[in-house]
Amino acid sequence: MMRALLLLLLSLMPSVLWAQAPTPLHVEAALDRQVVAPLLARFQQLHPDIDLRYHDNSTLNVDKQARDADPAPDVVISSAMPWQMARVNEGLAQRLDSAAARNWPDWAKWRNEVFGFTFEPIVTVYRLDLARHMMPPTTHADLHTLLKTHQDLLRGRVTTYSPTGSGVGYTLFQQDARYSPRFWDLVAAMGAAQVSLENTTRNMLKGLTDGTYWVGYNLLGSYAMHWARSHPDIIVQIPQDYALVMMRMAFIHRDAPHPAAARAFMDFLLSEAGQKTLAGSTPLFSVLPDVVGPYTAQRLRDQVGERLYPIPINASLLAFVDPMRRDAFMKRWNREIRILNP
């Protein structure tokens, strides 16, 4: 009797109910949840059948999760581009074969396994206070000159990433060093100014807001611009000689327990809808040239000209995670940062 009733109940249940049994999707990301909340919401709206579990974490933790977690995360997102690249090179990613993946610009993907889906310029940020005392820096050389000429005024009021505490920071410095040997003069000058090394852009912005710092070097433009909207005394400057551009890289884990959901998520990130949300509702710039919104790579290019230097998504990134090269870099960093100290 009970069984008959149960069967009747089962047969009456609309198939929608079955479809709604949600597939979990585990995204491990070095990307602040609150920054991308609109993007995640839009995804949930489009895929009510997927139960999105979004963990934001530091780049180092994300990398650790990608390597060791069991079960593995479905999707790994991180701004620590060399580490992401190293994981993909190890074979930890799986290929994404979809129209969106195929149409994604070549410079923003590798092997159709890992995709750079944001376009975030690296900026210099200063307080209005600074402008009262001196000409604000618009180039790297300006900053170097400023540090040398206003050494006393700026001492203790300069901040930048810690190359040991932040993968992003390390990457940016490595890339800076590749572009110009004069970068080390800047490091030495910052060292002389007793630079404070922070682990996140957020910390640097906080310090700038509360007046601890006057100038910050190599901040994530996306966060800084967002921050500056609500903090009028904070000025964001995209360097006029060259501006690095960082991309968040995302890949589907090789051992993803929910590959279908993971593919859906990736396709969404790369889709016009995803990129539109990115450009329209988050401070992250869209990679796609034809997406319209306040934050697009194209708009940035229009503003800054051709001085944007995206960190290339290719095998050369692997050099940055070579332990010996890292050691050598850090040795030099430590030497240079003290070289002008009395």
Partner: peptide, 12 residues
């Protein structure tokens, strides 16, 4: 001591 040149990876 090797400071691995990034170009080497590009070539590879």
């Amino acid at each position: 001591v090797v400071e691995i040149p990034a170009a080497a990876f590009q070539i590879l």
